[in-house]
């Protein structure tokens, strides 16, 4: 019988798919800055990164800094891990938030009890880091 105690190596988080268009977004996040794409033709603001404006289809856009103000559109609380890296975080929440500038994004809300959150409540950006990547979390105001 083998009595050696083997510690399970910690599971790695799945890495995000980063491409040429989205790289500036991830680079800015790593510096703690949240940015979004702004269309110079029609004024539309959006996330996640795309090559063309989904409103006017032009490719004439620039990265703008977000104010960090947002509101809570909806959220869920995971009580089951669909990937081993999240097993020791249960329960954890994932939310959709809308920045005051317009873009919507997936995030986590930094809060004690996510079941006490309220639809449309105001939030503010909190930079964080996971596995060498900058990420954007939010907390209630």
């Amino acid at each position: 019988m083998n009595t050696t105690v083997q510690t399970k190596p910690k599971a790695m988080l799945p890495d995000p798919d980063i491409n040429e268009v989205s790289k500036p977004y991830w680079d800015a996040l790593k510096k703690g800055k949240l940015t979004f794409q702004h269309c110079r033709k029609c004024g539309n603001n959006w996330l996640p990164a795309r090559g063309e404006c989904p409103k006017c289809l032009e490719a004439d856009w620039a990265w703008h800094d977000a104010s960090g103000k947002a509101k809570l559109i909806s959220w869920v609380v995971f009580h089951r891990a669909f990937h081993p890296a999240f097993e020791d975080r249960l329960p954890y929440n994932v939310a959709v938030v809308e920045l005051v500038e317009g873009p919507r994004m997936i995030t986590n809300i930094v809060v004690e009890d996510a079941e006490k959150l309220v639809i449309d409540q105001p939030l503010t950006f909190m930079p964080a880091e996971e596995q060498g990547h900058g990420i954007a979390r939010f907390r209630p105001v």
């Binding site: 798919d17 994932v94 986590n108």
Partner: peptide, 14 residues
């Protein structure tokens, strides 16, 4: 139930 592209780091699955 695959991880969701850019949002995988937030634990957005399924």
């Amino acid at each position: 139930s695959h991880p969701r592209g850019e949002d995988a780091l937030y634990g957005w699955f399924a």
